[in-house]
Design a protein around this nucleic acid. Sequence first.
DNA 1: GCGGCTATTGTGGATATCCGCAGAGTCGGC
DNA 2: GCCGACTCTGCGGATATCCACAATAGCCGC
Lengths: 198, 198
Amino acid sequence: MTKLHIVDDDEAIRDALGWLFQSRNVPVAGWPSAEAFLEAWQPDTAGCLLLDIRMEGMSGLELFDRLLSRGCRMPVIFLTGHGDVPIAVGALKKGARDFVEKPFNDNELVDRVIDALAFDAEQREREAGQAGLAARLATLTQRERQVMELVVAGRLNKVIADELGISMRTVEVHRSHVFEKMQVKTAVELTRLLTGAS
Amino acid sequence: MTKLHIVDDDEAIRDALGWLFQSRNVPVAGWPSAEAFLEAWQPDTAGCLLLDIRMEGMSGLELFDRLLSRGCRMPVIFLTGHGDVPIAVGALKKGARDFVEKPFNDNELVDRVIDALAFDAEQREREAGQAGLAARLATLTQRERQVMELVVAGRLNKVIADELGISMRTVEVHRSHVFEKMQVKTAVELTRLLTGAS
DNA sequence: GCGGCTATTGTGGATATCCGCAGAGTCGGC
DNA sequence: GCCGACTCTGCGGATATCCACAATAGCCGC
């Protein structure tokens, strides 16, 4: 389920943030440590992360690194009481969405979280489309993939036949199999699919 | 000409940085104030910017804002002696490439500047391609644009004819004019052009 | 070995696309 | 009024694409 995941080892802060967000109708889950969240995290965990930097055990930054290396692309907002420019710069350059110092403005933080949640939702939608595409691509045979690449490159069947050293008829067969498996009717549609157009 | 533009009101620092970069074969231009650079800036000014935050008159941040609003997309690296997290975060979120506190590591800074210069060069190359594309698009008539959109959407000529309420032959004529003006031979190539594929 | 998947090719015909040749109507500028 | 552009259309033919029917062959698993 899409929600805001608050990772902070200070229960009082988790509670306060939980109250703040729930009062704005933002669903929240609290985690008492980076380790706890990391263990529970799954590739399909959705929403966004509000991460304290300084914690007992694993720091927020380290959690961020580990999540990145596991392919997590959830938006992350860091929350810190002891600002440090190089840390903030490093986190943002690694892809963190924001870096907020305490004390923070409630409304601003809520807005940023809501933006981040919306961003994550959109991103997951895009990725779902890509996953379907990847699944269809996986059903193609080697030869079909080769033909598809040349079709998408704009080559005519006769040219493809020539380049692959096979007859035009065979190219036509592969081509139609590709169209069928990729669920398109024309080369243009196929090109749009693969180049990620609207 | 592509070069590193150093904007700092402290002549000693400009000189020191100038020496550093020229010794690494990075061409440099120094500017004593944000105003001076802003006045000299042109849309075709290439390279990257090394920008001091605190200066007499216009600050580095304000220069950055003004450049952005003028459509400047040169990579900007901020240099500051008095770090401040919200400022750094704000600058990076607005699109600054980096935010470095003094004292800095010479080699690291040089590397980042070289990366930024390379990025700018690539970006300009991409934009040059886009400009050529835009120029060709501008030569199309209204009708040709309509037909092109439908072609790129994957419609067959007969369908296009139907949707526009004209004969197939006319669609063919427009279609071939589009291909000619856009300098492509097939609908697939045209689609790749417009969707920005390799 | 048989069945299924993949790759290959052919024939022949229905559609679609590409193009030259020809002509016609509108609209705006010189 | 003439010229140039844009738009529209038809005819016919050369190519290309789409497809059903039909067949051969290698590879793999049961």
